[in-house]
C-alpha cells in the first residue's frame, strides 16, 4: 500500500481581488482532480479545497498568507498545481 504523504506549507494570495468566486471555482476544479485531501485556511480555520462555499469563507485577500495541508499519496502533484494557480494569480491579471 502506498504511503500517505502529508505536506504542510504556507502560500500567499497574490492576485488583486483575492479568492473570490472565480478563483475559488478554479481551486475546486484543480483540487477535484486529485485523490488526496486538501485543506486551505488560516490557523485553526481550514476548509476543504474541494468546497467552493468553504473557500469563500477563508477571506483570501491579496497579501493574506494561507496554510495549506495536503494528505494523500498524490499530495506533491496536487501542491504543484495549486501553487501554480496562486503564482499565476488565477489567470486574472
Amino acid at each position: 500500500m502506498a504511503e500517505e504523504k502529508v505536506i504542510l506549507c504556507e502560500i500567499e494570495v497574490l492576485n488583486k481581488y483575492g479568492i473570490h468566486a472565480r478563483p475559488a471555482a478554479l481551486l475546486v476544479k484543480t483540487a477535484g482532480k486529485f485523490a488526496c485531501d486538501i485543506f486551505i485556511g488560516k490557523k485553526g480555520e481550514e476548509v476543504s479545497a474541494k468546497s467552493i462555499m468553504g473557500l469563500l469563507t477563508i477571506e483570501g485577500y491579496q497579501g493574506a498568507k494561507l496554510r495549506v495541508r495536503i494528505v494523500g499519496r498524490d499530495a506533491e502533484e496536487a501542491l504543484a498545481e495549486i501553487t501554480e494557480l496562486f503564482e499565476k494569480k488565477f489567470f486574472e491579471e
Binding site: 483575492g18 479568492i19 469563500l56
Partner: peptide, 17 residues
C-alpha cells in the same frame, strides 16, 4: 445572486488588503 455575492467578496477583500 452569484454576481452580487462575488462583488461583496471582492469589496471585502480589497478593503482588507
Amino acid at each position: 445572486a452569484a454576481k452580487e455575492l462575488d462583488e461583496k467578496l471582492i469589496g471585502n477583500f480589497l478593503r482588507k488588503a
